[in-house]
Simulated assay, not measured.
Amino acid sequence: MEPYIREDEDFRPIHMGHALAVDALYQRLPRTQAMAVQAEYTRKNTWFGQNTAMERRVLARRWIQKATGEVVQDEDYLRFVEEFRAKVEVEVWV
């Protein structure tokens, strides 16, 4: 079966070496941080696609609290995502 790609989606090929390096960084994250990264990347469109960025953060933080029992403030959530993005930029895209 062919994978479904929306017509309006910007198709970019997956570079396996980079994908594996990003996954290795992701696997080392604490669970709460990993969940924030999931909400902003892998689950963004499927779970939160109809929401604004602020609504997505609120819903994601509720999801994290329900799953882990940890309360994540908005500034911490944003920091988790930005730290991961910066780490990928430094360690993978060099």
Rank of each mutant, 00 (worst) to 15 (best):
L20N: 14
E75H: 11
Y41A: 06
T46W: 05
T46C: 07
W47V: 00
W47G: 00
M54R: 07
K44M: 11
R28N: 05
H15D: 13
T68I: 01
G17T: 08
Y77F: 14
T42Y: 04
E91Y: 10
E55F: 11
N45R: 04
Q73T: 02
R28I: 00
E70R: 03
A19H: 10
D74N: 09
L25I: 03
V94F: 12
R56Q: 13
E91H: 10
N51Q: 11
M1H: 08
Q65I: 03
G17A: 14
Y77I: 01
A34F: 00
L59S: 08
E82T: 10
G49E: 05
K66M: 04
Q73A: 06
T68F: 02
E89W: 12
M35S: 01
R79M: 06
Q73L: 02
R12A: 13
V88W: 08
V90N: 06
V71T: 05
R12T: 10
M35Y: 03
E89D: 07
A67Y: 05
F48M: 01
R61I: 02
W93L: 15
Y41F: 10
R85Q: 12
Q73M: 06
V22L: 08
A60W: 02
A67D: 09
D23T: 10
V71E: 02
P13M: 15
A67R: 08
L78G: 03
F11Q: 08
R85M: 09
Q33P: 01
A67L: 11
I14H: 13
Q50W: 07
K87D: 13
N51F: 14
E91D: 12
E75I: 04
K44D: 07
T42C: 06
W63V: 03
E89L: 14
E91Q: 15
V58Y: 02
V58I: 11
F48K: 00
R61D: 00
E75V: 06
W93D: 11
A21D: 14
T42S: 12
L20R: 15
A34S: 11
A34Q: 06
M1N: 07
L20M: 13
L29Y: 09
A86C: 09
R28D: 09
V90A: 13
Y26N: 06
V58N: 01
V72D: 01
H15P: 00
R61C: 05
D8M: 08
Q38H: 05
R12H: 13
Q38I: 02
L20Q: 15
R62D: 09
L20H: 10
R43E: 15
R61N: 01
T46E: 12
L59E: 08
R31C: 08
G17D: 14
M35P: 01
T42A: 09
E9A: 15
L25P: 00
Q65V: 00
E83G: 05
L78I: 01
G17V: 08
T68R: 04
E55K: 06
V92E: 11
A60H: 03
G49R: 08
Q50V: 01
E40P: 00
F11L: 14
E9Q: 12
T42W: 06
W93S: 10
E55L: 09
R85K: 12
A53Q: 05
T68L: 00
R61A: 03
L59K: 07
A19V: 07
I5T: 11
A53G: 01
R56E: 07
F48L: 02
M1W: 06
V72F: 02
A36R: 00
K66I: 02
V72W: 01
V72I: 12
E83T: 04
